[in-house]
Design a protein around this nucleic acid. Sequence first.
DNA 1: TATGAATGAGCCTTCATTCAT
DNA 2: TATGAATGAAGGCTCATTCAT
Lengths: 204, 204, 204, 204
Amino acid sequence: MARRTGTTGAETAQKLTESALTLFARDGYAAVSMRAIAAKTGIQAGAIYNHFATKQDILKHLLTAHMEALLAAWEAEPEAGTQAPRAALEAFVRFHVRYHLDRHREIYISYMELRNLDDGNFSEIRRMRRAYEAIPRAIIDRGVADGSFSVLDPQVTTMAIIATLNGMSIWYKKEGRLSLDAIEDLHIALVTRMVGATKGTADV
Amino acid sequence: MARRTGTTGAETAQKLTESALTLFARDGYAAVSMRAIAAKTGIQAGAIYNHFATKQDILKHLLTAHMEALLAAWEAEPEAGTQAPRAALEAFVRFHVRYHLDRHREIYISYMELRNLDDGNFSEIRRMRRAYEAIPRAIIDRGVADGSFSVLDPQVTTMAIIATLNGMSIWYKKEGRLSLDAIEDLHIALVTRMVGATKGTADV
Amino acid sequence: MARRTGTTGAETAQKLTESALTLFARDGYAAVSMRAIAAKTGIQAGAIYNHFATKQDILKHLLTAHMEALLAAWEAEPEAGTQAPRAALEAFVRFHVRYHLDRHREIYISYMELRNLDDGNFSEIRRMRRAYEAIPRAIIDRGVADGSFSVLDPQVTTMAIIATLNGMSIWYKKEGRLSLDAIEDLHIALVTRMVGATKGTADV
Amino acid sequence: MARRTGTTGAETAQKLTESALTLFARDGYAAVSMRAIAAKTGIQAGAIYNHFATKQDILKHLLTAHMEALLAAWEAEPEAGTQAPRAALEAFVRFHVRYHLDRHREIYISYMELRNLDDGNFSEIRRMRRAYEAIPRAIIDRGVADGSFSVLDPQVTTMAIIATLNGMSIWYKKEGRLSLDAIEDLHIALVTRMVGATKGTADV
DNA sequence: TATGAATGAGCCTTCATTCAT
DNA sequence: TATGAATGAAGGCTCATTCAT
């Protein structure tokens, strides 16, 4: 029939992305049907196409929006990237932990659904992901350069830090044993050790 | 329309698991069709059912076989778990790195396809995975107890180590910049730092 | 790829039941494919699922609709069940013959496809069938009670009458040797004899 | 592998027909797979083809064997067809009831699975069935000719008798309310009435 | 914008049958 | 004769997508 009174296209689109995010994270992109997304949203499958051209577009939108917001959020951090390496790394860890606290689903599909992106979309997301990974890498490089850090291999160390932080973003539950503050402190300590920080405030 | 001369069932079953492993790792369980597995194996889709009852069974077999072999391999390690914490952790890292060197696909699907397992199968795999994760955890606990290690939280540290090692297992390519020996050394160093090892031979 | 101009869902559903009825009656439920039903209806197989959830549902619908209509038609008969036994039995035979005249297929699948119903559906149809068979049984009981009929066993007599009438419904063809009136008269005579009617108008 | 010691082909073939008879009667020809027949027999599906060329052949064999045995059994009846109409009809009913007592399955598939026969097989079975139906028809004709019976239409009466007897063969259970003798007597009485027998012993 | 009906492709699985062993 | 592995076709059903309304 027609639009239900009081709803707007933007609202529907927003609800659709929310539904898709939940379902993709829970069941995986390939296992989620357009009908399932529509049902969770309270509309029929055909109506999705008023908002997204394809199922692929929904995934792309989810991942792009997440990465863009993530990068923008880091940019918005006060003094992002301007601090001394030790403080910068600590700030990055804190930022990552806090930013992903309510974004389990986003970070999960960001790593699980990459292979379901079409080539072009994949490249775009990979570019953004690399931009994000470049943040800790740059901090490490600066730390190595000024002697704050001592690492055997900056790239491997970066990968290990990213893996540790992403892993945590997935398993961490607010209701769990550890508070957010504790999680932050633990990971700052871990990361500090991984880079072989030799001086500064947060020594563990 | 019958068996081709010279073939046996065991051969076909083996080829099927190999095909499925490759395809599941590349495209994901849900995106791989029985026809695709059959085609890669050189048979018709229907013939798969002489070897596996369902598509789900193939996945289960792949994951179970991998986890069983992994646990058995660790058990077969000389002095597994009997060494001092520092040496034991080093041995574990070395084992993990070497064991997974040619098993990108297995470790990948072990983490990516868990959600595609039926409930019963999922529980079984999770149990085995926890058994594997208990290995570094036990080493850490021993190290904390005897003062070899200093960690803020043994569980979080274990998770971080697992995440680091698994991440590496996925991105590492033999033809890449780093040799296997280098990868081993780098990760031993990283993990040693993560546990705050305070004494012993492998200090970095 | 969408609805063809001028068609409606109700029309398609109606055509589907008609197609299924014909095919089930001719080839049997198990031997008829959804594709065959769709083809006879002029749509693709997948479109059937906009109207029926499963193949089983089509069969259930066919049988339920038939039995409901049959029972409702008897209820709608003037003086249904209020006449004297002899007249009531005659009315029932006449009703059965006339009602099934154009319903060869319905009565055929009602007896042939019962075993292809799922348990729940089977029970429901059996209940309705028993309600229909209770009609002649009640008449016979009344006739026995008031001395109009003389039967050795009311239940066996009822079964024999039902078998006779259903058999006729299946082999009778309008274009055949016998007119509808003749068929009616012949079966009234047969049934009258079967119940050992001892008095009344329709004596043969 | 090879033949299991102590079994012969004839034994296997016999067990196969028994399995098929049970399964066809219970689930219908189309719903029974060669694998199901093999499993019930204790062999693999492929081995069936040492005994029957096709699934269709099994059905044909079942129906042909049943009809041949039925006709032969009637031929073997003492004085078959030589008695006076009244006695002959009584003998036929008695024969039919007794012969089918342990042959629910045979008579059931004889009526249910006709449509699953290929054209040639169908014709052959129909010919035999007609030969069987000709038996009561001939008796009726003789009875009408000599004044023992009074029927409005011999063909319709024959069909009604066949329908009554077949129906009984299907619903009758040995453990039920009625003994075999009672069933015989009841049906002799019913059939006697249906043909309007005017004189003779078995008057009811 | 949304619905509901349709398409055409594809999916997992089953099946009758064949044949090397 | 029997097994076990294979084929090729088909079956019920789902799906992304389209489009008249």
